[in-house]
Each structure stands twice: as C-alpha cells, then as structure tokens.
C-alpha cells in the first residue's frame, strides 16, 4: 500500500508496512499495535483522552498522522513509567485517587507528564492546572485531579 514506516514506541523500534497513509496515530497505536491504553474519545481534539508523548511533547494522537511522526520517539500510557516524570504522576494520581471511570485518566497522565518534562514551563501548580485544560473529565469534577497536581507541585518545589 505504501512505504514501510519506522516508529519507536515505548522504547521499541518497529517497522510496519501495513499502515495507510491517511492513518491517525491513535488508530495505529490501538488497532495495529494493540496499545489500547490510549483512549479513543471525541476524535476532534477536544477531550484529550488520546494524548500521547511525541519526542516528550504531549500530542493529540487523534489529530496526528502516523506518517508525520515517523522517526520520533512515541510514548503511550503503557510506557509512561519510562519517562522521567511518569512514576511521580502515577503515584500522585493513584494516591488521591484522581480517577473514577478511568477513561480520561491515561490522557491526563500523559499530558501532565509532558508538562512536567517541558523546558521553559514553570511547573507552578496554578500553571499546571491552567495548562491541563485541554483534557476533559466528566466524573471527578477535577477536584481530585487538582489535589493530585498540588501534591506533585509540592514535591517539585
């Protein structure tokens, strides 16, 4: 169908030749690679449930062509423990617990992990709350998520 594509996903180098050129990273991860921890929500970039890291930067996998991230380093929720900030975020969300149904949770974890690792970002709790507004949650009313972020902020300071 098209040229083989090389991806590095959660530290593993892959080469696939069964991808469509128009394929979204979300579908590649979920249905080609079986990484279902990346959740499919709105597919319009409005909910953040599909957030993954591309070269460490939080990215909406529903609005990203897989072809455009060839050669990058992709991290999904299944590999977040390998990111510098990943374990802390998991611990903070788990301790609260900052989740209910859990469907938005991987997206929040990835977005927050990306923010904490971003150069130039200030990491103040108020900034983190402001900069997570791309992720929607319908269960928690966000309060437990804000508490988890606060706990993280304390650790970072």
């Amino acid at each position: 169908m098209s040229q083989p594509i090389r991806l590095t996903v959660n530290g593993t180098d892959l080469e696939r030749s069964d991808l469509d050129d128009a394929e979204r990273l979300l579908d590649t991860l979920r249905w080609r690679l079986g990484l279902k921890g990346t959740k499919e929500g709105c597919r319009t970039g409005d909910c953040g449930a599909c957030t993954v890291l591309v070269d460490g930067e939080s990215t909406l996998s529903c609005l990203t062509l897989t072809r455009e991230v060839e050669g990058t380093r992709i991290t999904t929720i299944e590999g977040v423990r390998g990111e510098p900030a990943g374990p802390n975020v998991l611990t903070a969300f788990g301790a609260e617990p900052a989740l209910q149904c859990g469907y938005c949770t991987p997206g929040f974890v990835m977005a927050l992990t990306g923010l904490l690792q971003e150069e130039g970002s200030t990491h103040r709790t108020s900034n983190l709350v402001d900069e997570l507004e791309g992720n929607l949650c319908r269960c928690t009313g966000y309060r437990s998520i804000i508490r988890a972020i606060g706990a993280l902020g304390d650790e970072l300071r």
Binding site: G45, T51, S58, T59, L63, A111, L132
Partner: peptide, 9 residues
C-alpha cells in the same frame, strides 16, 4: 488556542 497538546502540533 485549544489546549497544550493541540498547541504542540
């Protein structure tokens, strides 16, 4: 504009 993950692209 949007949220941070959107602004990364």
């Amino acid at each position: 504009v949007g949220g941070v993950p959107l602004r990364h692209r």
